[in-house]
């Protein structure tokens, strides 16, 4: 259904496959932060002003995850998606 210019379409960007770096940054790091680290914090039973440090850690994970996705989108994926859409028009 698409007869786009093949020079502009290297095979991997052609169907917007998620590349390994975006999977590592966009999914790997957030999983590491929210699933791998917390059991250790839970085991240590640390508190600050009576608040479990794990809770504060989870708060920190929120901007950290947004940052990961921002890097993925602006650093890797945005120009590929926009180039593919321009091709269509």
């Amino acid at each position: 259904m698409n007869k786009a210019n093949p020079r502009k379409q290297p095979s991997i960007t052609g169907n917007n496959m998620s590349t390994l770096p975006t999977l590592l940054i966009g999914l790997g790091i957030p999983i590491f932060l929210t699933v791998i680290v917390p059991p250790f914090l839970n085991g240590m039973d640390l508190t600050w002003m009576g608040i479990p440090v794990l809770l504060l850690w989870m708060f920190l994970c929120i901007p950290a995850t947004a940052l990961c996705l921002i890097v993925c989108w602006y650093g890797f994926d945005r120009h590929r998606y926009l180039a593919a859409e321009e091709d269509k028009q």
């Binding site: 957030p30 699933v35 839970n42 794990l54 809770l55 989870m58 929120i62 989108w73």
Partner: peptide, 21 residues
């Protein structure tokens, strides 16, 4: 306490990296 807080925040955070793909 943490039993609820951890999974509630955690799953909402991870929902977006998964949704991104």
């Amino acid at each position: 306490g943490m039993e609820s807080a951890y999974w509630y925040i955690g799953y909402l955070i991870l929902a977006y990296p998964f949704a991104y793909f």
